[in-house]
Write a protein that binds this DNA or RNA. Sequence first.
DNA 1: CACGCGTGACTAAGCGCTTGCTTAGCATCC
DNA 2: GGATGCTAAGCAAGCGCTTAGTCACGCGTG
Lengths: 196, 196
Amino acid sequence: MTDATASRSARERLLEAAVDAFAEKGFTATTTRDIASRAGMSPAAVYVHHDTKESLLFTVSVQGHRAALDVITRAAKDESEPAAQLHRMVHEFSTWHAENSRVGRIVQYEFDALTPEHRAEIAGYRRQIERCMQDVLAHGVEAGVFDVEDLAGTARALLSLSVDLVRWFDPHGPRPASEVAGLHADLAVRMTAPRA
Amino acid sequence: MTDATASRSARERLLEAAVDAFAEKGFTATTTRDIASRAGMSPAAVYVHHDTKESLLFTVSVQGHRAALDVITRAAKDESEPAAQLHRMVHEFSTWHAENSRVGRIVQYEFDALTPEHRAEIAGYRRQIERCMQDVLAHGVEAGVFDVEDLAGTARALLSLSVDLVRWFDPHGPRPASEVAGLHADLAVRMTAPRA
DNA sequence: CACGCGTGACTAAGCGCTTGCTTAGCATCC
DNA sequence: GGATGCTAAGCAAGCGCTTAGTCACGCGTG
């Protein structure tokens, strides 16, 4: 069991160590020696499995964005009525950001540390997430069940609410993720519901 | 005019250079040599006016939080009717964060780079901002013009919307700060208005 | 079965450079 | 003649990453 193939792969262990370190001290303040020692390896071992420190960040960023995109896309598919759809999307998206606030903080705050090529790729994921939210709002307006003047702006605000959780949400705090997610989902519905 | 007392004081010039550098590359990725050269001085000159690199960050952070607290406090005082009060507070608070997104990003994202003592002091400013928002919501509920179940949670969400502007708002983008601020203020009112 | 050999995971040591900050000294002004 | 504001030079420490080499293992061959 102490053997390398039976336990978690070294590459994966290094990724988890990188997430720990990046979340705790930020990308630039994290040393490759720190990552290595968290993974129980020598500094040089990092470079056996990953090209550079930045590529470690990029891998974390891709995985994080794919997971978030997956969560919001599935939520949209699982409902048909616009208000229920929106409620579920915001609920799930907020839950993900609350429960993965460490990864979330890395991908949001260390975006500028990526190379231009990697930044462009990540920007693509972000556009997909935004489009997903805009589409649901548009359908709701078409169906006459949403009252939204500024589609793009409101979509951004709704996502903003969820994403900003990575800044302040504390998994060990008194408020469970489900409670915050529920509040956000309710607020989202109120923000888009027809007015008197 | 090239003389030091006639132009902006060296201490102030260093602070502005620090804001530029921190906003552009983050606190840890910024070197004291970078700050010095942006201010047109030698590396050692930084330490004539500021004790450490961290104290430069702390000064920026205090000034930023004081300005934001001032903006939201004044907005609350300038109106008496709760809905108008809330609208104005969110409008001004969003405007400030959009127009000062560089400073805002520094104070929000580099919070952990402060010493524990400085962190505690900054946390005090944040509590004051939060209390200001909570008080207005509470008064509105008391007066029967707001329908808000989760006071603390809703206050946090409202502030979240504004603060998250520092993450994505681009002063050179197509959307003016006033437009986003107006949208946020409208959404805030809808989030708290009595339901059918 | 024994043996040699290639392969992949890993380490000890270290290279060249940069970091935050200090020191010693100099010009200017009151 | 003592502050004040600044610079040139540099120190100790730490940085990302490389190099050279060790070790355990799988496998084809005699």
